[in-house]
Amino acid sequence: MITYADACRVINESRSEAVAVTTMTQTKYWNQVSGEPDLDVGIANAMSKASSVALGIALGDSERPVICLDSDGSLLMNFGTLATIAGMAPKNLYHFVFNNGIYSITGGQPVPAPDVEYAKAAEACGYAVAHRFSDIETLDNAMPGILSSDGPVLIEIIVKGEPQTDGVDQTWESNARLPQQLRALRKRLTGTDDWGSGGPYI
């Protein structure tokens, strides 16, 4: 069993200048280790859509690796994304799925089918490669090779299933931060600061 903190640490060690699109509990732990906040986006205001945003970024900037830190509950809510990603086949997309079998931030209720194997589902949809890890040493050793292989790759990580109600990045404050993060990322990727204000937060 892997902890969120350990998984985020080893992913970050191989991250280089990849864009990181995170969601839910993963965002909390990723923010504790990331050294590139201008390349991070925490999708807090649209549950399940982190992988779809990551796909768009990967297609729009095909030279830069894009990692997505998704979760089982979120992926189940947007399961068609596996087929959409496989269909477009972006070589620079690395789709991590933190599988704990529960909805952490709402108190630990089980997801509808806790035994789904997301790596097998991704392979069946047509991802280039899929992996499943349940111990941190194996994940740590595999990470450099994963991020140097052609995507789309799905990396399922079996994590400890504990409720994570404290400090989870899903608040009004984080909703307001999302437009700022996206503008900072666009500026970093395009070199232009041309996205003005719009919407309720900015």
Binding site: V21, V41, A46, K49, S52, V53, A54, L55, G56, I57, A58, L59, G60, D61, N78, G80, T81, A83, T84, G87, M88, L182, L185, R186, L189, T190, T192
Partner: peptide
């Protein structure tokens, strides 16, 4: 860019826009 469900379309477009 074909999507499997309409709810994916706006997030994919948002990502594309962010990437320029």
């Amino acid at each position: 860019v074909p999507v499997a469900r309409e709810g994916e379309a706006i997030p994919v477009a948002a990502g594309l826009f962010v990437a320029g």
